[in-house]
Structure formats: C-alpha cells, structure tokens
Design a protein around this nucleic acid. Structure first.
Lengths: 128, 128
DNA sequence: CCTAATAATAGTAATCGTTATTAAATTATA
DNA sequence: TATAATTTAATAACGATTACTATTATTAGG
C-alpha cells in the first residue's frame, strides 16, 4: 500500500553492497555507511537491509556460526564459508538442483529447493 | 582437564532428544524437562545442549529462519524445513558428497564439506 | 515554487535468545 | 565419611535486532 520513497541512506547501503565482495554483517555495513553519513543509525541500516532483502534486491546469508551476512548479488548462487578465517565467498558453479530429486526419493512431502553452504579453507588460508 | 560428572538433568535432556523427532529448540527442551525437574533453569538447558553438541552426542541445527534446533541423532544426515508449518524433519537419503567436487571445480581453496537444507512442504501440510 | 501528505530518519528504549556469575547442591574420590 | 571437584538454580549481563517517536526528507498537487 505505502509507496516507497527514495532515501540517500538506503541508496548508499545498496551501492556499498553492490560493490563489495565482503558479504558484510549489518554492523559492518553500519561502520562503512557512517563514513558517508556519520549519524546514520544502526536501526536505519537494519531496516533497509531487511527491506532490500524482502524485495529480493540483496541476499541475507544465515552463516552457520550464528552470524547473518548480506550479499549485494541478488541472483541465486552458492556460498563458501572458511572454517579458518571465517570469510564468506561466492562460488562459481553449475546448478545442483538434481539433489532435490535425490532428497525427494524417500520423502512423502514436496521438496521445492535447497540451501547449501560449502565449507573448508579459503584460497588465502590455503597459501599460509 | 576437568572430568565430566554425571547429572540427572543432562541425562534427561539426552534422553528426551533421543526419543523425539521434534528437533526442538532450547526453549522447547526447557519446557519438556521442566515436567520432570520443575526447577531446572534455562541456563542449565543451554549449557548441556551446547556441551552435548560439542561432544558430538547431539546435533545443533541452524535453521534458516534464525532459530536453532537440536537433534538427538548424532550421525550426519540431511534435514528438511517445511516452509508452511515450520517443522523440521530428518531425510532418508543417500550421500551427495559428489557436490563437493562440483563446487571445487572453479574454486582455488579447499572444500571439505557442505551443509544442505532442503525445503518445501512437509507430508502433513501436503495433505491439507 | 509552495504546501500538504506521508515515508524515512536518528536517537533511544525495549526485546529476544543466549551466556556469565555465584553461592549452594550434587557427584566422585580417598 | 570427609574432601575436592563439578553441576546446578537463580539471576544478572550481554549482543544482536526490533520497536517507538519526534523530527526531517521526499514526493505529488495546486
């Protein structure tokens, strides 16, 4: 019902997410945006991140360590979680939707999709 | 260093998890155990659930809606999340470890494993 | 270009799930 | 049984997130 109005703060958040590979947490976004809008409030950051996630413009990543991160890349893709340094990275890989059929084989409900996180050691941590 | 001593409360929690298919949250466990030990404290429940999860005797399930649930079945297996009623179920299915290789193909780090949740409509919700 | 309507904000308080603290109770050991 | 160590209940504290509210920013119409 209510019309979405423009806001510089929301635009800055979107812009930041679009240009970083960091997969930042809400707090990390807050820290960054404060450099441009020093008195943006944390609540504004949370509200806009959820707003954008609801609209499908950004992705919310429920990492397995309890932390929530955000990804400016809206298109579905898989994520990698480094068990060593805790970083989160996008994975370039083909679809694995065939696993839905495997799961469906002995299940009497209806499987519509899956969420998969891969974990291990990131490229940087492998070098050390 | 420290030796683990027996406690009836911990035993009751383990017992409860071993015999339920509910995949309860910490609070649900608390509610149940209170029927046996009316003045068990929520902190005791949390401490023991984490203790058991650390020892690998139970599993901690980080559902994608932000809630954490527990599973008395220690052996690795996949879970199903119902988008309709929110229930969590065990899936009987073969290993899909081959997806690790798919993910590794264009990744310069080292993929050691994956966490996958399947979602859709559970058997009960399909009937309605 | 003003003005009115309304959405978004900053600042703050409140909430929720979880963890930390501590004196007392329980369990293991000698 | 006495002693040492662990676990508990009760409560306080914590961190992440959401709710509230008066003020500010954005937008549409005259």
């Amino acid at each position: 019902m209510s019309v979405t109005k423009y806001s510089r703060q929301r635009e800055a958040i979107k812009e930041y997410l679009a240009h970083t590979k960091e997969h930042p947490t809400a707090d990390m976004v807050y820290m960054q945006i404060r450099k441009i809008y020093p008195n943006i409030s944390l609540g504004t950051v949370y509200r806009n991140l959820n707003f954008l996630a609801d609209k499908g413009e950004v992705q919310k990543i429920d990492c397995q360590d309890g932390s929530i991160r955000f990804d400016g890349k809206a298109e579905p893709h898989y994520h990698f979680l480094c068990k060593n340094c805790g970083c989160v990275k996008d994975l370039e890989m083909e679809s694995i939707d065939h696993i839905n059929e495997i799961a469906n084989a002995n299940f009497s409900g209806k499987i519509e999709g899956h969420i998969t996180y891969f974990y291990g050691k990131c490229p940087e941590c492998c070098e050390d």
